[in-house]
Design a protein around this nucleic acid. Structure first.
Lengths: 234, 234
DNA sequence: CGGCCGTTTGAGCTCTGTCAAACTCTGTGG
DNA sequence: CCACAGAGTTTGACAGAGCTCAAACGGCCG
């Protein structure tokens, strides 16, 4: 099955003005943004861009979930973050004028709007409020990265796995039965935590024995949130 | 000895216009920047700001070296980065309008210029080139943080220590005898690498046995750069 | 001189990564 | 409809990297 090819999609349904990032823009700028963008559907497993590639613009996600990964020397991938509706990706390399240093891969079928580099520059040069907003977004991401460095350097795998579950809860919410609304393989969880797949499996089943969670395949149901916080040592 | 109190210092010698970050500013903006700033000397060991404190501005380093650290739950500190002449610090929390999430501590006697928040905002709102430059600085820092996450999650302590030595070499150069021009305790090295002090000690002496480096107290002399790169797995 | 801080070394142990094998589940093709 | 391949999951056994604890040593400063 060919799943790497994006399909163009109806532009009308992907109005970007509803997203917080673009709130500082005036109607004329929004018009330009929507005129310049190109939206596409990406199937599960599709790669939006790869480490090392040159980018011609950044992307705003209007639907679906992607993982941003970085490949270590031994080929093992580290998940840097997940992105979903309203998030923007690929802006870092673009602004630094470097090749991409991460890869973006689709986890749940997604719609992405590509916004050309010159449009981004135009907005930054002409709308200081937008620049400030962009700065704040990057700063937030930087804070999260710094937090993560401290965690990964100092915490045990057990603590980090609990923390990742809590992070997923915050990012993707729970349904009415407290089940995480994102489906990840054990390997993906391991690549987030920075550990081996088998370690994740063992720890998850320990969490299950301890009545912290319940497992049904990839569905993870959170039973005891306070204890999970305690395990995460937060 | 009281070493935490900053001393005001001669403003004349700390002209900020020579730094790359402020290159996009026009003469009038530079004037304002220099008028608004307050420079102080900080002794070794002094804390410029602490995790959790509210900041009234950001700082530009015109002299000396500081470490930016983050304290884990168990009190162990993680060194996020080192900063030196020309670097700016504390801008992240300022822009996000949050309390500081890191602590800045002086390693080598330093002179810092404090630039008030409203001056930063003024510059961002009025000079798009400056905003773009700021964005690029944050983006670079973010890239480094992401690289570090991958390293720390996937590499061995041995590899990371070699990498840290190389990083220090790039940041602080070597003297004519290939000695690192920064003096760190073993504990500080451990807090960079994300490991125990004893592990750093053991590995350093292994590197010494392998003729990669030479040790005289805190002075580290690099003997075999290519092999060090190999050990770092870069 | 004494105390303190940083460094060094040794011993032991635990966490976690690796390897191997079995099992489940899904989609494919005969 | 069944057999099969392949991917993902699970479990067990094992080894070793790296952490902790303890003790001794050196240098520096008051």
């Amino acid at each position: 099955m060919m799943r790497s090819t994006p399909f163009n999609t109806n532009v009308e349904e992907n109005d970007l003005s509803k997203f917080k990032i673009f709130r500082p823009l005036n109607p004329q700028e929004l018009q330009r943004l929507n005129d310049d963008k190109t939206c596409s559907v990406y199937r599960k497993g599709a790669i939006v861009y790869r480490e090392g590639s040159r980018l011609t613009g950044f992307y705003c996600i209007t639907q679906g979930i992607l993982k941003i990964i970085k490949t270590g020397n031994d080929g093992k991938e580290q998940i840097i973050r997940f992105v979903k509706k309203g998030d923007i990706i690929a802006y870092r390399s673009l602004l630094s004028n470097e090749s991409a240093c991460t890869t973006a891969k689709v986890i749940e079928e997604a719609i992405l709007c590509h916004i050309p580099y010159h449009t981004l520059l135009y907005l930054i040069e002409n709308n200081p409020k937008f620049s400030l907003h962009m700065l704040q977004i990057v700063c937030r991401e930087l804070k999260e990265a710094n937090d993560y460095i401290t965690d990964i350097a100092q915490k045990t795998v057990r603590e980090r796995l609990a923390e990742v579950l809590l992070l997923l809860k915050d990012n993707f919410n729970l349904d009415s039965s407290n089940t995480l609304q994102i489906s990840l393989t054990r390997e993906e969880l391991a690549n987030m935590v920075g550990t081996a797949t088998e370690s994740v499996i063992r720890l998850l089943s320990e969490f299950k024995s301890d009545k912290l969670i319940e497992l049904q395949g990839r569905r993870i149901k959170i039973l005891d949130l306070p204890s999970l916080y305690k395990v995460a040592n937060l």
